[in-house]
């Protein structure tokens, strides 16, 4: 069984991003970049499927600039067998990303596609669902548990107010939520080994994907600042303020 896992290079989750002074975009120069946390969980899940004898091959794919190779290599170090980098300098919208991944699915014929439920930069939460539409594969989004058996995937999904379990006929798409697993750290020997694993490079153009944007970013701005609050001296004063001033209790 083959697993395709998609990973994205994003600003590290510990970095606070700011709009550029002219509001034309987000200041990204010299920020620490990492693998998107949800994608890291997807890689970990793929590796566990392989360790449990379910998956036989893991292909990791990323779409981005040349530097996104680092995130593919990181996935190889965690246990993926082959990497694919779809090189583009342009930031692609989820629809274009889904089209690129559809082209890779046609080429690789995976049984399961694992990906993060969203990336922590664009926060769109769309790509997995859109890939589902383009491939016709069923989808198990926001997964907190994945069981694969007999050509089916049983996916427990984190939904508002609880959990839902769906049964999907493979091939299927699974997008990860936080509770699915805790990713491991790559060991030094595995990082060294990853350098020798195969890595293919292609481009959206070579895959025949139209990447023309549909959405224009007009401006970015910081969210409304919170006005500085006050210190209260006691529980009594706090409760009084909440009851009589803020009127929230």
């Amino acid at each position: 069984m083959k697993v395709l896992v998609a990973v994205k290079r994003v600003v590290d989750y510990n970095v606070k991003v700011r709009p550029k002074a002219d509001g034309s975009g987000v200041e990204l120069n010299n920020l620490k970049m990492s693998i998107n946390p949800f994608c890291e969980i997807a890689v970990e899940e793929a590796v566990r499927l392989k360790e449990n004898g379910i998956a036989t091959e893991i292909v990791a794919v990323s779409i981005g600039p040349q530097q996104a190779q680092e995130q593919v290599r990181a996935s190889l170090a965690l246990g993926a067998d082959k990497g694919i980098l779809i090189k583009t300098e342009q930031g692609l919208e989820p629809l274009a990303v889904a089209k690129c991944l559809k082209a890779i699915c046609d080429q690789e014929n995976p049984d399961i596609v694992l990906m993060g439920k969203q990336s922590i930069d664009g926060d769109n939460n769309q790509t997995g669902q859109m890939l589902g539409a383009l491939t016709g594969y069923p989808q198990g989004t926001f997964a907190s548990e994945l069981k694969v058996d007999g050509g089916k995937a049983s996916v427990t999904r984190e939904i508002d107010g609880g959990l839902q379990t769906v049964s999907l006929t493979l091939p299927a798409i699974v997008t990860t939520d936080l509770r699915l697993n805790e990713p491991r750290y790559a060991s030094l020997p595995n990082i060294m080994k990853a350098k020798k694993k195969p890595m293919e490079e292609t481009t959206p153009e070579a895959l025949g994907v139209d990447t023309a944007p549909r959405v224009t970013l007009l401006k970015v701005e910081p969210p409304a600042e919170r006005t500085a609050g006050m210190k209260v001296a006691s529980v009594d004063e706090l409760l009084d303020k909440l009851k009589n001033e803020a009127k929230v209790i």
Partner: peptide, 30 residues
Amino acid sequence: VQPISDVIAVEGADTFKRPIYAGNVIATVK
């Protein structure tokens, strides 16, 4: 169609505000 997620304000029939980077930045998109 490229959908727009998590709209927090409508600026016009084709222009919307939405939070990105977990709400640290508000984007206006068309």
